[in-house]
Design a protein around this nucleic acid. Structure first.
Lengths: 152, 152
DNA sequence: CACAACTAAATTGTGCACAACTAAATGTCG
DNA sequence: CGACATTTAGTTGTGCACAATTTAGTTGTG
């Protein structure tokens, strides 16, 4: 394979992922707008609905996001009345993100979102699961590579 | 399947894609920093290297990006001396993005990037091609769904 | 020709991602 | 106990994504 062809292949794979991510976002956006959420805000709410109140630190681990992204995002959720932020009593460095009644109630309205997304993809659940497995494997490999790169 | 399980599945697939996209970015970032490029800037350069000088409009079609994103990005490439922007003579609404000698020369230094990315993924070219095919199909389905949504 | 409809870029404003840094609380070890 | 490292959030600055709007140039139609 000649070098320009490598660049061509590179364009294809990195672009495909980039484009798929943004296309996904484009389908979620109007659905989530009805709930008053952005896509990353929805991810935070999904984690809170599933796992209950969490400190910012734990949220960041689940979502692979740092405080520079989460701090302002959670503040916007608080401004929208969906969560409250409380300094932990045991460890005052930690800020606990708690669902409000309104935030918990929003879950009911979110039930239809996954169904509509699923139908938009045209994929059946098995195919989605397979794709997910592959993406997670890719992410793990890339993260490992980034870490060894960093420690070299 | 109960409703909370749907939300759980939703968290998995949309999060997987989101995370993979950012993980990819994380591996490219340090490699591209050596070239003085960000990841989206690299995508623009790949298109220009492959297809030659293009108007902003065409770049946007290739990359699925609008002028709101491309205008400042291309200006930064111009500030870095990699491209020049020229009003088209035939159609003065159009701005042609042209590689400078420096921009064209950067291609040689970019050759190693795809190889290092490929090894970071731990995937072989066939597997990458398969993933890419699936992602492109997903993107096409999502775009189509977004369009029918919009025209309803 | 006049003028409305359209098109290409650029601009504005909001929000996300992330690196680098700061501040405050906590942990550790001599 | 007390200096020092570590941990958790938050802040700042840069760049990308995208909706909405603006500006300038082009095209089509009466």
């Amino acid at each position: 394979m000649t070098e320009p062809e490598w660049l061509r292949l590179d364009r294809q794979i990195c672009f495909s992922l980039h484009a798929a991510s943004r296309a996904f976002n484009g389908v979620y956006r109007p659905l989530l707008a009805d709930l008053g959420l952005t896509y990353p805000q929805y991810l935070v709410m999904l984690v809170l609905w599933e796992e209950g109140d969490l400190p910012v630190k734990k949220l960041g681990e689940r979502l692979r996001l740092d405080s520079g992204t989460l701090s302002p995002l959670v503040k916007r959720l608080e401004a929208a009345g969906l969560v409250r932020r409380e300094r932990s009593a045991e460890d005052e460095r930690s800020v606990l993100v708690r669902l409000t009644g309104e935030g918990a109630a929003l879950r009911e309205r979110a039930f239809e979102v996954p169904r509509r997304i699923m139908s938009a993809t045209g994929f059946d659940p098995a195919e989605i699961g397979e794709l997910r497995e592959r993406l997670d494997r890719l992410t793990a490999a890339l993260d490992a590579a980034a870490r060894t790169e960093a420690t070299r």
